[in-house]
Amino acid sequence: MLGRPFGLLFEPIPAPYEPGAAEVEYLQRWLRTRRAGFAHWTATYGDGITWDHSPESLEALGAIVLRRTPTLDALADPANADFVEGASWYTGEALLRVKGGRWIYRDGDPEVNLFDGYPFVKQDGPFGYSAVPYRALRVLIKRGDPRHLRKRYDDFSA
């Protein structure tokens, strides 16, 4: 099956994947941390924005990402880790609310497999597509396009 025309961010996973216990534990801890810290995250980085997982909120997030982390080096800077993790989580949650799905985490080298090393979302069903929110943030910065996350949302909902 060919991927959709927008490239590596939304590709079918080649085979069903069952994460190991350590991967499940990592993901559960990451999700708990993100959920528990979301109110603080929004107050710190996006006060005054309606964080309702809508396409419009993703546009607002895109603008914040470009202001806060305008370069790939800034995105990878440990000083910005809380912001980046929160932005990744929010992006994934917005995508999951479009057609359902689940979070998955696979340990491994993201330079070898684009689904390894970062939590990602996968739509339900045999032909469900997946998205790696951290990679979507990288593309947003590379393109300098604050609407990029909105476009991915629209693509994911098609």
Rank of each mutant, 00 (worst) to 15 (best):
I104C: 09
F83C: 12
L96V: 03
A94I: 04
D154L: 15
W51S: 13
R68Q: 13
F156D: 00
R102H: 13
L61T: 00
G20C: 04
W103M: 10
W103C: 13
G144H: 06
Y17R: 08
L66K: 09
W89A: 11
P16H: 02
I141A: 06
R4D: 07
G46L: 05
L66I: 07
G20A: 11
S157T: 02
R135Q: 08
S157N: 12
G100C: 02
F83Q: 09
L58I: 11
D73Q: 12
W41T: 02
E59I: 08
P78C: 09
L61Y: 01
F127Q: 14
L95V: 03
A39W: 00
W41H: 03
G108S: 01
G7V: 03
P14M: 06
R152M: 15
A87E: 03
G117S: 13
L149G: 10
A87F: 03
R29K: 12
A79V: 07
K142Y: 01
R32F: 07
T50R: 15
L140G: 12
R29H: 10
G37N: 07
P55E: 06
R67E: 14
T91A: 15
D155K: 09
H40V: 14
A136N: 02
P14W: 01
A81D: 05
E11S: 13
V98M: 06
W30P: 14
D154H: 12
Y26G: 08
K122D: 01
A79D: 11
R143N: 15
S88N: 04
Y105T: 06
T33R: 15
Y129H: 09
R68L: 04
R143I: 02
P133W: 01
F156S: 02
V132P: 10
T69Q: 08
L140P: 13
D107M: 08
L66C: 11
R68I: 04
I104Q: 10
G37Y: 00
R97Q: 13
L114Q: 06
D73V: 04
A76G: 12
P16R: 05
R138K: 14
K151Y: 02
A15P: 04
R97P: 07
R68F: 02
L2T: 07
Y118N: 07
